[in-house]
Structure formats: C-alpha cells, structure tokens
C-alpha cells in the first residue's frame, strides 16, 4: 500500500517537474542540483533552494526600494543586485527568473526607469511562481519520503 502511494507521489513529482521544464521555469541545472544530493547531504536541494529564496527576497526588496526611490536611482547598485540574483538563479536552474534578470539588467544599463519597473514586476511574478511551484515539489517529495518510510532515498527517478 505504501509502495503504491510512493509511486503515485513520484509520478506526481515527475509530472510537476516536466511541467516546469516545459514552461521553462526550470532548466537542466536543477537536475544537476538534484544529482548532487546524496547520502552525505540528503537535504541539499532543499537547503540551497531555501537559501535562494531568502537571498532573492532580500534582493527583490532592495531592488524595489531602489526603484521607488524617487529622487535618484542607483543603477550601478541595481546592476550588482541583478548580477547576484542572476548568478544564484542560474545556479539553481531558475531559468525564467534569470531571463527576466537579463532583461532587467539591460533596462538598468540604459537607465530606463520605466522599463526597470516593468521588469521588476515580471521578476516578482516569476519569482512567486517559481517559489510556489518549488514548494509544491518539495511537499510532494516530503510526503514521498515519509510515505516510503525510507530516509532520504537517492534522487534516481
């Protein structure tokens, strides 16, 4: 019975992943990340993604603050933030967030405030989408792990 549940959960997970890949939300870098998870670091993906969320939220907040600053927008600082966000997004394979970052950076390089604001909105949207989907994924994963009664199995799908 348990085994059956685990299978179903695994199927769910795969479906979700396939969807995210299809939408371009994630790329193969995420699989790389999953492959790095092993017995010595069973929660690696979860940890990294959690750090990523913390960092990104901080950066998004900073970006928002920089752009809403009426008088003078520090585009250089913005570029730095975006670089950071881009780096971390590409590290976890958040493809769409990264792409939006690139567009954002292009706008900020042209000191295009309106473009930046638009890009920021898209970025926030993408980020929220990614976050909810990854949460979903991790929840399924957790259930699967609990259901299978196996502690931290390998990520071989």
């Amino acid at each position: 019975m348990l085994g059956f549940g685990a299978d179903r959960l695994r199927a769910d997970m795969n479906r979700l992943l396939a969807l995210l890949f299809h939408q371009g939300v994630l790329d193969e870098q995420f699989l790389q990340l999953q492959q790095l998870q092993d017995e010595s670091s069973p929660n690696f993906v979860l940890e990294v993604v959690n750090i990523y969320f913390q960092e990104s939220e901080r950066l998004l907040k900073n970006l928002r603050a920089l752009l809403t600053d009426r008088e003078l927008t520090d585009y250089k600082k913005m570029g730095n933030h975006l670089n950071q966000l881009m780096g971390s997004s590409s590290s976890i394979g958040a493809n769409r967030v990264r792409n939006v970052c690139i567009a954002f950076r292009a706008n900020s390089e042209q000191n295009n405030r309106a473009g930046c604001l638009r890009a920021l909105e898209v970025l926030e949207h993408e980020y929220c989408y990614l976050k909810s989907k990854l949460h979903e994924l991790f929840q399924i994963e957790q259930q699967r792990v609990l259901g299978a009664g196996v502690r931290y199995p390998m990520q071989q799908n």
Binding site: E47, V48, I51, E55, Q84, S88, S91, I92
Partner: peptide, 16 residues
C-alpha cells in the same frame, strides 16, 4: 563567492 546560493552549490560540487 559573495553569493551564498552559488557558494553552496559550488561547495557541493567541489565536495562531489
């Protein structure tokens, strides 16, 4: 790496 996410990833890679 100033970027903690990347650093985490990098460390894991290197350990691998």
């Amino acid at each position: 790496d100033a970027n903690i996410v990347c650093l985490h990833y990098l460390v894991q890679l290197l350990q691998k």
